[in-house]
Design a protein around this nucleic acid. Structure first.
Lengths: 146, 146
DNA sequence: AAAGACTCTTTCACACACGAATGAATCGGC
DNA sequence: GCCGATTCATTCGTGTGTGAAAGAGTCTTT
């Protein structure tokens, strides 16, 4: 608790620190139980929910730049988690979808993430969890309009 | 707003996405106006407030692992922002403090961060900003007991 | 149809994070 | 005093992110 005081009244630092801690936790669990990283799991999760997507769309949803997505998908492709194919309709773009193996990993990752988020909710209590969710959603949405 | 739905009910992803956006914004401003990165600014900020510290202490406050701090401080030292010296009392450890140049950069960064956080507060409104602050602080604190 | 503008992805060089292993100094028990 | 355990920092290899620039394809304008 003492250490939090150092960044008091600096919402930005608070978000960054919290994100780092959560990422570390989630990554450890996912690596252990599903054999994928936290970053990869976010993509798997998205593809599982929404199906085949373009790289740019993934980046938009996850707030990642084009080079980040490109590299992430390349590593996932090499790991056999996703399949990348040219978009016939617009041959500049590439479409990404889950492989068989990727779908299994995605479902495992989804379950782990679900459990983790449930624990977060419990740790925070319903009110704070709801408030956090609401505030972050607003933060992200308001960012969209610059 | 539509894109937020994809990660709905996944607090972890929400925190990560928000952190990435904020980091990118803050980094751009700091690089432009103070010539330091967002990660470096967090260290500068800490040293400005609390004075000379050990590497481990910095990592604890900012939720960074030892290798991350070591590299970050090395780059900052090379850039002339901080000075690293052996701790005479415990010669395993090293102490880090601001250089002259570092102090100036720290004050600039502090002002920029202050402005940015004020904008965040304004964008969110007092209630949501307060709720966010409260929830994140609790999240970080509750993580400590793991 | 050709030229130029625009969009999507990749490549490049770099910063920043991690876990695992290593080196160096201190501490604790004997 | 000495030896093993512990602690603090660094190094190593890798993954993940960035901005800038390049490459490839599409669209728009004439």
């Amino acid at each position: 608790m003492a250490r939090v005081r150092a960044v008091d009244r600096r919402l930005y630092l608070l978000v960054e620190i919290a994100a780092r801690r959560l990422h570390r936790d989630v990554d450890a669990r996912l690596t252990q139980s599903a054999g994928v990283s936290a970053s990869q799991a976010a993509v798997l999760f998205l593809l599982l929910r929404r199906g085949e997507r373009r790289l740019g769309s993934i980046g938009e949803t996850l707030a990642l730049g084009a080079p980040a997505v490109s590299g992430l998908i390349s590593r996932m492709e090499k790991a056999g988690l996703v399949i990348r194919r040219k978009d016939a309709a617009d041959r500049r773009g590439a479409l990404v979808d889950l492989s068989e193996h990727g779908r299994i990993a995605a479902e495992q990752a989804d379950a782990i993430l679900r459990t983790y988020n449930a624990e977060l909710d419990e740790r925070l209590g319903e009110d704070d969890a709801e408030a956090l969710h609401h505030a972050l959603t607003r933060l992200i949405a308001s960012e969209d309009q610059g």
